[in-house]
Computed example of a mutant assay.
Amino acid sequence: MAKEISDLTTIDLFNDEKRPGRPKTNPHPRSVQVKINKRNQVKRDKSKGLKRVEFKLHQTVFEQLDELARDKGISRSELIEALITDALKSDSKD
């Protein structure tokens, strides 16, 4: 009897075969990998002198920021930083 890959009635014939797919390259489960990657990202940001700031915006303001950042060809984060820097400069001149 020949075995066919699509034959589900003889699935026991395929128990010892390796399934195609991406090989496992990391010994840690995904949840641990995410924590390690986040910790490394925080270290990289800290060494660059960056601090994390989190705040909430209304959806319309968010969309306006997104559109303006796209028009200028920069990230939303860079746009917000530039706007805050400009506001601080103009405030110090007053």
Rank of each mutant, 00 (worst) to 15 (best):
A2D: 05
A2E: 05
A2P: 07
K3R: 12
E4F: 13
E4W: 05
I5W: 06
L8M: 12
L13Q: 06
F14D: 00
N15L: 13
N15K: 14
D16M: 09
E17T: 03
K18W: 09
K18H: 10
R19P: 01
R19W: 08
P20L: 12
G21A: 08
G21H: 04
R22I: 07
P23Q: 14
T25D: 15
H28E: 15
H28A: 13
P29H: 11
R30F: 15
R30Y: 13
S31F: 12
S31C: 10
K35C: 08
K35R: 13
N37F: 07
K38R: 13
K38F: 03
R39Y: 13
V42Q: 06
V42C: 03
K43W: 02
K46H: 07
S47M: 10
K48N: 11
K48W: 02
L50T: 01
L50M: 08
K51W: 03
V53F: 13
F55V: 02
L57E: 02
H58N: 09
H58L: 10
T60R: 05
F62D: 09
F62P: 00
Q64S: 08
D66N: 13
E67G: 02
A69Q: 01
D71W: 01
K72T: 02
G73M: 03
G73Y: 01
E78D: 11
L79I: 03
L79N: 01
I80F: 01
I80C: 02
A82C: 06
A82P: 01
L83S: 05
I84E: 02
T85V: 14
T85L: 15
D86N: 13
D86M: 11
D86W: 05
A87K: 09
L88F: 12
K89P: 01
S90C: 06
S90R: 15
D91C: 08
D91Y: 13
S92E: 14
K93E: 15
